[in-house]
């Protein structure tokens, strides 16, 4: 069966760092504790400059935007896994960026929280927050229904099976790299 993710997008530009994704004052929340995991989600992207608007409506736990579209170097800065986790906990299923910082990309795969797609073109200048898109996993493409246009994505490659499995532990067990 072909896999797709569909929904509204939230658009940001370059160098969105981990302090903007989840500011340091919320890092006392421990992601492996369920209630604190949910709280992290409610603070996702709260450090963004005000011009972007609200990613999560204050008082809500989840975002209405399951897909983030970004420019270069998304997730740069700290190694805090709180960043992909806050996004995942808020309901984000995928980010489509031109490029990623290394640790953020790695943490997406390790946790299995969300899919870090890379776009070929710079979508963040063309797309607007609130538009509807569909990401097709087998075709490696994103369709913007508001613009009625299809764009190519780079293959997820070796990280897709890891995230499909639910992160490195699940993957390591599936493939026999660790027992149990």
């Amino acid at each position: 069966m072909s896999k797709v993710i569909q929904g509204k997008i939230f658009v940001v530009d370059d160098n969105i760092d981990t302090d903007q994704i989840i500011p340091a004052e919320y890092l006392t929340l421990v992601p492996s504790k369920l209630d604190e995991y949910e709280k992290l989600g409610s603070y996702a992207l709260i450090g963004l400059p005000d011009r972007y608007g609200k990613f999560v409506t204050p008082g809500q736990a989840k975002t209405e935007y399951p897909i983030i579209v970004a420019g270069e170097n998304f997730g740069c800065g700290s190694s805090r896994e709180h960043a992909p986790i806050a996004l995942g906990a808020s309901g984000v299923k995928a980010v489509v960026a031109q490029s990623y910082a290394r640790i953020f990309f790695r943490n997406c795969a390790a946790t299995g929280e969300l899919y870090p797609w890379e776009s070929v073109e710079r979508l963040c200048d063309e797309f607007q927050t609130g538009q509807e898109v569909t990401i097709d996993f087998d075709q490696n493409q994103i369709t913007n229904h508001s613009l009625n246009k299809v764009y190519v994505l780079k293959s997820l490659g070796e990280v897709r099976p890891v995230i499909d499995a639910g992160g490195i532990f699940a993957y390591a067990r599936q493939t026999g790299m660790i027992s149990r």
Partner: peptide, 14 residues
């Protein structure tokens, strides 16, 4: 180099 909690948890065990 820096890593996230999940990778670190993996190292702790293995």
């Amino acid at each position: 180099t820096g890593i996230g909690n999940t990778d670190a948890g993996f190292i702790m065990g293995t």
